[in-house]
Simulated assay, not measured.
Amino acid sequence: MLNSTMVTEFLLTRFSDVWERRALHTMLFLLTYLATLMGNLLIVTVTTLDHSLHTPMYFFLRNLSVLDMCYISVIIPKACVIFLLDSRVISIAGCAAQVFFVIFLVYTELLFLSIMAHDRYVAICQPLQYPMIMNYQVCVQMTLVAVLSGVVYSRFHTGNTFQLSFCQSNMVHQFCCDISPLLNLSCSDTLSNEISVFISAVVTLVGSFAIITRSYVHIFSTVLKFPMRREQGKAFSTCVPHILVVTAFVSSIAAIYMKPTSHSPTIHDMITSVFYSIVPPLLNPMIYSLRNKQIKEAVRRITRRKLCSGK
């Protein structure tokens, strides 16, 4: 950061400068934020209070919900401020913090989604060995590895980015700070940064997607052997929406981090960012709660207990 002497702050970009559209964007982002917080908080509360949901699957789901609440909280409040108010300024320290947390949360979410897919693979394809393979100690260890590796990964890329000199324009062509638009602003040689971002993105995305795809291929091949059509339909109705969200998440990240750095950013880059920063945290609770019979039954049990205790 000592090299960034000529730029002391950055300016984030809105989708539009027209006041009516800015107000509409603010309202949409706030409604999305509230819906995401409520959905994920419901999952955290239910999976914590109901002892029948103290299983590896819901342990990881609870962690994913906490991660999603943190993820969307890093992005949307600041975005709403720049949409609604005249100020679009973010300090260099604030920008660095946002970059760190966005990368950390994206990377860790990818690992959690991979772990959850593997958990379902073991539960469906190796049910007799499931309690031994996915015991509580293993679940905690996998979670700690995901979080700590996310910290290292994010620290590396954030440090590399903010060692560069920023002495040209300070206009970040995104509604939040991210590596790609920041590399456009640097007057240093960014080739090594672009290579490291590309290679790490390829390894992370391809590795995670391969684990998820392998898990679901085995799950589907096992499910197709079920004798009852109803059981097959139930499994497919749960898995297919999850696959679609994961595919949108991975492909939008790839579109941002695996393409060459462009010095002519467009509105499409900002729209693409929405698909990996806002859509997955919003849809995950819908997939895992509204379509999950166990969670809906747990909500009823908790509600009845609260009503009875209130009387």
Rank of each mutant, 00 (worst) to 15 (best):
238 T>N: 11
156 F>T: 13
36 T>E: 01
25 H>M: 05
126 Q>G: 01
20 E>G: 07
115 I>E: 07
301 R>H: 09
288 Y>A: 01
97 A>W: 01
86 D>M: 06
222 T>H: 14
306 K>S: 13
194 E>K: 03
50 D>N: 14
17 D>V: 06
127 P>T: 04
187 C>Q: 02
309 S>G: 02
76 I>W: 05
48 T>G: 07
70 C>R: 04
76 I>N: 01
161 T>A: 03
137 Q>R: 14
17 D>M: 03
155 R>Q: 13
261 T>E: 09
84 L>N: 11
234 K>T: 13
185 L>T: 03
1 M>I: 06
109 E>K: 12
274 V>W: 01
129 Q>A: 15
47 T>H: 05
164 L>T: 12
51 H>A: 14
232 Q>F: 05
247 T>N: 03
172 V>K: 07
195 I>M: 09
295 I>F: 07
63 N>M: 10
91 S>G: 09
149 S>R: 11
263 H>C: 07
195 I>V: 14
40 N>T: 05
126 Q>M: 15
69 M>H: 01
81 V>D: 06
227 P>C: 10
83 F>Q: 10
100 F>H: 01
143 T>C: 10
219 I>P: 03
125 C>P: 07
193 N>K: 00
64 L>R: 04
239 C>K: 05
210 A>F: 15
120 R>H: 04
35 A>G: 13
55 T>I: 08
218 H>I: 00
71 Y>K: 00
143 T>N: 09
241 P>Y: 15
32 T>M: 10
231 E>N: 12
169 S>H: 09
28 L>V: 11
161 T>I: 09
241 P>V: 13
239 C>W: 02
112 F>R: 00
29 F>V: 06
228 M>N: 11
261 T>D: 08
83 F>H: 12
6 M>F: 13
215 S>N: 04
224 L>Q: 12
220 F>E: 08
53 L>G: 04
135 N>H: 15
230 R>T: 11
15 F>A: 09
122 V>Y: 11
161 T>H: 01
117 A>P: 02
298 A>M: 10
133 I>R: 15
208 S>F: 07
216 Y>K: 15
311 K>E: 11
211 I>G: 05
39 G>R: 06
85 L>R: 12
97 A>V: 09
